[in-house]
Design a protein around this nucleic acid. Sequence first.
DNA 1: CCGCATCCACAATGATACTG
DNA 2: CAGTATCATTGTGGATGCGG
Lengths: 111, 111
Amino acid sequence: MKKKDIICETVGGEGCGVRKVLNTIGGKWKILILCAMHGHAAMRYGEIRRTIVGITNTMLAQSLREMEADGLILRQQYDEMPVRVEYALTEKATSLIPILLELKDWGEKHL
Amino acid sequence: MKKKDIICETVGGEGCGVRKVLNTIGGKWKILILCAMHGHAAMRYGEIRRTIVGITNTMLAQSLREMEADGLILRQQYDEMPVRVEYALTEKATSLIPILLELKDWGEKHL
DNA sequence: CCGCATCCACAATGATACTG
DNA sequence: CAGTATCATTGTGGATGCGG
């Protein structure tokens, strides 16, 4: 029996893909942010905040910064008056969306 | 434009599927538990614990109880001496596994 | 062997007010 | 408008020991 036949001898360790995903988009808000931005070419800060029920400035700003650092979103600042900032999903994030939609469907069907 | 054309007017509220999923299998361990149990007809407590790197008794026991309450796993206790307890995935949980594997693949490819 | 109970540390999240 | 700063609160996770 080859190693590939075993799904996971152990999970959650160093190189575990699931663990990496959880570290990147785990937590209460990041997945919701991705869902909120799906289908929009670009969204402004306030627009995202209004879309996500219950999120606070603290959490939104912090999540956006981390997701930018992880290469999931792009931040574009326009130095107008007043300032305008737009966020867009990167290709990496876009490739994740279909999976999140499946999760959503599963949740609606089973929960 | 029909409402269905909009992915989510708002997300994270009452009936939001994604929010439900996060409430059910969010957190640090539950997704890993599901991955660990995938492919096994039944697993004993200690076996699960050894499979998941870093998990403690507290978190494993608590997670298993909650997942049983949510209908994701079945708990079968054999009153032998010493006690033997086996856990198995329900059909509901099994239907979630493919999505988790996609997440895992995404993580390995992109992170 | 299984896993619950207790107690505790710290991280995550939240409310509020304030700035460029 | 788009955040930051600060402080309060909650939640998550861990160590340890006990009991069936």
